[in-house]
Write a protein that binds this DNA or RNA. Structure first.
Lengths: 191, 191, 191, 191
DNA sequence: AATGAATGAGCATTCATTCAT
DNA sequence: AATGAATGAATGCTCATTCAT
């Protein structure tokens, strides 16, 4: 049990180090050696926990996905109207991205890895059903779900990236405004 | 003259081959050798036309930037209201992206290259002034220009990416709807 | 412990192989691949022991320097007069050079490496003080130490080189004579 | 005739440029392209005047050799005693080396080129006979000519090199002293 | 489980040389 | 004679992965 815990901790340490380095140096700017050094372990040790680099990066992605899935669940209230849920969830995601920019950075880059899924689909899987329902109720436009996701998630990563370039772009108060704008993009006028 | 033209052609051929391969294998999944093979030239020849890989990729980006800049210019009519210009331009960009997916793919990836600008700023530079004006006239929301760009360009790349995953997402008719949705995201309600 | 020793042995093997190849092909006529092949290791292995070619060559030089420093120390007797020490040391160096021609060959070539010191200064550092003293005592001519070194070490490398061209130039007995001649070059007549 | 002269000039320009660059960057630190750039000609043009790099460098060496040969001839007076001739010639060579350090630098490096002769032998060929005679007359020690050359030319290149390291080592007046010291190294005591 | 030396394929880049103009 | 684009072999170096300890 103790051993089991230690192993889990090392695995997490590797994933976290990898995430940090991908953000700093780009998905392909990192080597197993770099990760090992940064995590204060031997290069060979990574292969005790992961079969290869590809699987390790997929695990990083999986870790992030679970995190966002959790976030969505936490901000969903089945008794609230869709719009309120949407704004709450979008707000939470944007805040999470801003708090840990490694997340959106990794997602955007990982989307280009051969064989990886869209990068966003998995992560926002829990939202699909909600959107489906909202579309059926004509609360949002009659656009394929993937399109609705693109219209609302696209701006989020875009915004985070912009911040790196245009300092002071986002003041605390703005987060709501951007969530609202995303809503405006997909909501039916008669909302 | 003939030689001059031949030289220019070879340079273009290299850039075009690089663009295709970046899209297929990712920005870091390509080697100079691969480009040379694909372009049917010797590896060393690339260095006759570019000082190194970095400069060559920057040239690809520059080529694309000029293309989009041109597109924007062509679809702007100073006598039309801002909304109409916005919809025309967005429509044109989205269509261009769909016609040559290598463009948005390259842009998104190149944005992560060390030292490169946001990737979108350069390309949409001509739009900045238009947006500035529209904001002053309260036609669009009081959000920093970079934010307006994020809200409207973010979905475009998002959409194109989604297509790779969700086939048949975009029918001809939809383009207008997405441009309209982007507009909804930034326009003032009283529009 | 066993592993440690093996590592040290491999490092030495690389340095020795490099020294031999530099002598045979010139400082710039060798490649890392050549060294690896000759040492029966993989090319990449060299980089396990040295950060790059430059550092590896500097290590070869350092190895030689230590060897000569040691030689000087062994042939110096503080109770003997300067002339006797000089002849003994010069004799020893010349013999060492003749026994392993790779040493003077490497030194001469390494002196031209960017950023390397004169190549001789480091090696004969222990002799500087002795010469300084001898000059003060007017045992040798009033010439800057570096000049005295040039007058006495210059011929040594010259001699060794000549041997490659003019076979049979040096019989056992001659060594003393050349040491004596070097002494004649710097000693005060009234010696 | 005019064309012939122009050709000869270009050939000289190439050799001179090569000599300068070898001194600055080392024998192997230069490329044909560098030489061409520095000489303001096209890379291919060098091959109009020389069959390849090797032959071109041999031509640089030949040029220097002729220069030194000439110098020796000019400072030899058949009516003067050997010692006087020796001092004059050595003085002249040392001064020439100091005036144009490219000469000793090139010679020392070229001596290590595969297949090149000792580097010094050719150059001092005219002195061999003089030394032979002097040895027969017991004016100098009974040492093989090559040894005598080593004892007297070795210090010269050594001195020139030292100057790069120890500034101010050589004042005008010193040249005579070093020539004298070289003489002391080879002359018979009863001189 | 952990180590880190060893591997060798692969990479970006250089360079002497060729040759069509 | 002169040019300079093109070549492709060779170089120094990196890196994911293996394996004996």
């Amino acid at each position: 049990m103790q051993a089991r815990k230690k192993t889990e901790e090392k695995r997490s340490k590797i994933l976290d180090t990898a995430l940090s380095l991908v953000t700093k140096n780009g998905l392909h700017g990192i080597s197993m050696k770099m990760i090992a050094n940064e995590a204060n372990i031997a290069a060979g040790t990574i292969y005790v926990h992961f079969t290869n680099k590809e699987e390790m990066l997929a695990s990083v992605y999986e870790m992030i996905t679970l995190q966002i899935n959790q976030l969505v669940k936490e901000h969903y209230d089945e008794n609230s109207p869709f719009k309120k849920n949407f704004l709450n969830i979008w707000n939470a995601i944007l805040k999470a991205y801003l708090a840990d920019r490694r997340i959106p950075d990794f997602i955007t880059q990982y989307a280009f890895v051969e064989g990886a899924s869209s990068g966003i689909s998995d992560m926002l899987e829990p939202v699909y059903q909600l959107l489906e329902e909202a579309r059926r109720d004509q609360v949002v436009k009659d656009i394929p779900i993937a399109g609705l996701i693109a219209l609302t998630h696209g701006p989020i990563t875009g915004l985070v990236r912009m911040i790196g370039v245009t300092k002071g772009l986002l003041k605390e108060i703005d987060v709501d405004m951007y969530a609202q704008s995303c809503w405006d993009a997909i909501s039916n006028k008669e909302d």
